[in-house]
Design a protein around this nucleic acid. Structure first.
Lengths: 204, 204
DNA sequence: TTCTAAATTTGAGTCAATTCAAATTGTGGA
DNA sequence: TCCACAATTTGAATTGACTCAAATTTAGAA
């Protein structure tokens, strides 16, 4: 019976994540009590804290699942990007944004971001930061790809430009999740507008 | 005795802010207990909650004092900016960054940002958001000024560019406060590098 | 199979933020 | 000056996240 312990661990962990995920969605992050999550996952409160160092960390674990899907979708866009700089960048960023609310409500995003800011050194604070970096890297990869394709001038600092585009999108995304009433359409328009000058400058 | 009530309010409020400010600095945000703050300010715990809806809000009030100073310093730079686009932008952003740790530790910044993200609709969540917007507006104002001076091309979208520069600086600042060991010098270098392409593109 | 030690779980207890009903204080009119 | 009412303060009680010492479970050596 090789690894009952490991098997149990995986099983318990997924029960915790599943229970938390459901309760966060149903009752909101603040509304979901740890005791409830423990009951639903059929473990004790202590066990949850054995797996996650605090409530926020549980949420960030869920975010992580989400972002991995987003990254995969991003890869597909980079493989065959639209043959136009503006459209290509817009396609990638739109893909990020469209996916963002599939599993996570704005409230959940707010909490996840807050936690990762508050505790950047907790295991999941680090996870969140790493995800952010992966997304930024992907944006840079798109710029590099566009340079390869001759759509973006070779002499621009692809990394600098990619990071700037990602960073400014990220800030606008933060504004978006802070304003419960802001529609996705408005976010996308803001992003396009803000990128326009830079895009024009780097187009080959 | 017109307004004893109003006078007391102002007095108590400033005692609370002062006590909190000292304790946050001395014991860190998490370490400072509300009861302690109340004792130091010579009010009851309940009174603090009469003035601020939670612990994070007290901190954001302190941040607000800080940012107002930063905005004033920014105004002076905009009045007489360096006669070179890159230097002018760098001067403004450097001023923001250099001031940032005078009254607030990185930990305090993390908490303040987390709170404002978590509760964007609380009174001080709104305050924080407004401060951010003021800073962004100031960055845009600098670009406009540089356009007036003929240093930045008239045909660029000053607002879009200003917001992009501010947003991307803001994300880098967030990274900076998350990493306790990251020196200010590195932050400034990153910002300069990231802005370079855009700055080149808009220079007249 | 049996036993020991390490890993893991448990949940009652702790701690600090937040609430709220009672007590106090300021105001303006008689 | 005195009173009634509204605003404000108070701190004991509540709440819910998090801890930790005891109990349970697994691994694997004998």
């Amino acid at each position: 019976m090789a690894g009952l312990r490991a098997k149990n661990r995986i099983d318990r962990n997924s029960r915790i994540v599943e229970a938390a995920s459901e309760l966060f969605r149903k009752e909101g992050y603040e509304g979901a009590r740890i005791e409830e999550i423990a009951a639903k996952a059929e473990v004790s409160v202590g066990t949850i804290y054995n797996y996650y160092c605090n409530k926020g960390d549980i949420l960030v674990a869920i975010v992580s699942l989400e972002v991995h899907e987003v990254l995969a979708a991003g890869q597909r866009i980079i493989r065959k990007p639209p043959k136009n700089v503006e459209k290509a960048i817009d396609a990638l960023l739109a893909s990020y944004i469209e996916h963002s609310l599939v599993y996570l409500s704005k409230e959940m995003w707010r909490q996840a971001m807050a936690t990762s800011t508050q505790q950047p050194d907790s295991p999941f604070g680090k996870t969140y930061t790493a995800l952010d970096r992966d997304l930024a890297d992907q944006t840079c990869a798109l710029i590099a790809k566009l340079q390869e394709l001759g759509l973006v001038r070779r002499d621009v600092d692809g990394r600098g430009v990619g990071e700037m585009i990602f960073n400014s999108m990220n800030m606008m995304f933060i504004e978006f999740i802070k304003r419960e009433d802001m529609p996705m359409r408005e976010l996308r328009a803001n992003i396009r507008r803000q990128n326009r000058t830079l895009v024009k400058a780097i187009s080959g």
